[in-house]
Design a protein around this nucleic acid. Structure first.
Lengths: 211, 211, 211, 211
DNA sequence: TATGAATGAGTCTTCATTCAT
DNA sequence: AATGAATGAAGACTCATTCAT
């Protein structure tokens, strides 16, 4: 059905174009014709690389999360102590959104929500090959060692690692989302600092020293 | 075009039906015919109360946020100390999603994202009468006094109130979102507790007592 | 799927239009748009009465054979002796095609083949609600009593009635088909006479009297 | 456009593949891509041998009737008396269909109808290089000497030879067609016998001997 | 006021055909 | 000579919206 001919580069161009289009107007409203034009190819050519619009979306979905995970993973893999890493990750979240929002890519990040919605519905309706849940679990799994490390090194409170991971990542998501809409109303550096203050003073058990 | 006839009750039924339909299948895929049937009226009747599908969405948007704000506002208005309130609010977030997800309304909460997306796009594209940003600011404005109160009473750290409000609310949002997808993988009570642990041990400056 | 609203008259107009269009250009090449225009309605309206093009075809199929059977049945029901009836039926076959071919309906009869092909393929491919075989058996069943009657009255040779029915009807079909193409090359009255000569002198066992 | 390159063998493979494909799914639904694959060549190569799909069909049309005529002609050319030949031809019709229907070629014979329809329409619409009428006349012309021979030898009734030819051949066609669909419902040998009984007892004037 | 039958603009998708390699 | 990637014209079907009843 989806023959996937050789030109891998062209396939990528379609995915990128689709990402932008879906982000800008939504998956339902994103026309294959628009995607094709944006990719600089003919309408029919899209179907040489993907069997359907749904299939295009699936590819966008996959690529998006791979990139996202790669971004965070690069930070996590670095050789530094857990506290610094958490700080880096929190800072990075703001910076990542800030970059995503610059220039013409301004709406790119909306694709996260599009993907979230579409992916969740597909899952609910059972016709999904894109297990959204699984993606989230991959993300948690990626963060998890960092938390474990912090706990074992005594840097983090000895709370349940699984639940901490969930909360931290979920919170980061929400913060990114809101910052996405409100960045012109807030001072980024102050937000970064406050975020770290709130998270870390709680996460770290250094204060216990004082007890 | 939309004369807005008398029967206000019927108008509400349409909005409720639209909420469910949009939540379940998305705004783009939500059909006027489906909404009408769910509201128990004829297709044409929808156009007696609303001038277009877009107009129906605007009403859903408005009602949804009014309800949401009412829910949180009820908690905030209660006469109790700021720390307890924050705890209540965090707990409530989990409970709210838990309730929303029970029974047939299981997808209701997806409407938040639908609304978010649609609202944000409308705003970006300039054709919006629904300022999404304004809604968010209303929400922050609602939470703000609670933070101010906590700070002035010495219960919360003397950080910048505006930024705290942003972070707390954004985090709550993210947590709700993720819990929405993952609730069957986690123990709610443990999550509640860990959430409060992380947020509050950081937010509260009680540890200073020890100094 | 196929709501089938009230206006039965309009439904008939669509079927008639489809019959002509399918006959003229084939089922595959027959466009819904053309059918709609010919029926004097909007494109979308076709879908108020039929759920798909396939469904339109099914209706054409059904109506066509009902008419066809009604035509032959009227002859068969008449109160006259079997030999005369067979003669009438053979004559009628020529006349029927002759009429079908006059004026603008000139291609109408091609629909028989279209239907034959489409029906046969649908059956083979299993996705048929139009059992073509069943239709043919209905036709045979209709002719059968005539043959039985002729045999029991001693007018026809005492051959196997079922097989006679098959052969006579199949031959009539072939004759109609060829006449359809060749009528301008032959003298109809001569064909009628020759046909009866060949069929009847064989079918009747009157000649045995002479033995 | 269609330079008709050397490899005649490849050209035949395309025609054969097209025959099967058209028979199976119809001319409209038969895709050039499918034909190419079945012929074991590239899609573009088809256009080295034929200028268009229509041109491919024309070749199939021509080849099919050549084969068909060759089959019957072989029988007609044999040195035997007219009555035996007619019997042979009638028997052969059943056997031919029986063979065509065995194994994977099961739908091959449908091509006759496809060709009939397409050919007839092309003729009607004037864009035909395939005079369907002419083909039929060739067939009649082939049978004609057999009838003439039978009449002149006194084996057949002295009816008009041209009309007899038409009727016999047309009837054979119809019988083949119906047998194609119904062969599992009838006993072939009985059908053969009954067919010959009906046709020959009428065609032969042997009964006159008794007079 | 309420309705739902009618409509056609708009979208995905297919496929014959072209053409650079 | 052979190929198959690229293309866009064409067509089935959907659905917001209108309007006569």
């Amino acid at each position: 059905m989806a023959p996937i001919p050789k030109d891998e580069n062209k396939r990528q161009r379609i995915i990128e174009a689709a990402l932008k289009v879906f982000a800008e107007v939504g998956v339902s409203n994103g026309k294959i014709a628009t995607i094709a034009k944006k990719a600089g190819i003919g309408k029919g050519t899209v179907y040489e690389y993907f069997s359907s619009k749904e299939d295009v979306f699936a590819a966008v979905f996959k690529v998006f999360f791979q990139k996202m995970m790669a971004g965070y993973n690069a930070l996590i893999q670095q050789d530094m102590d857990p506290v610094e890493k958490i700080e880096l990750i929190l800072d990075y979240t703001y910076d990542f959104f800030d970059e995503s929002l610059s220039g013409e890519n301004s709406a790119d990040w909306l694709i996260f929500l599009e993907i979230f919605l579409q992916g969740y519905r597909d899952e609910t309706h059972g016709d999904s090959k894109l297990s959204f849940k699984n993606i989230l679990h991959d993300l948690y799994r990626m963060f998890r060692p960092l938390i474990d490390d912090g706990i074992s090194k005594g840097a983090f409170k000895p709370l349940d690692a699984e639940h901490i991971t969930f909360i931290i990542f979920a919170a980061i998501d929400g913060i990114g989302l809101h910052y996405f809409i409100n960045r012109d109303h807030y001072d980024k550096e102050k937000l970064k600092q406050t975020t770290k203050d709130i998270y870390l003073r709680g996460l770290l058990n250094t204060q216990r020293k004082g007890t």
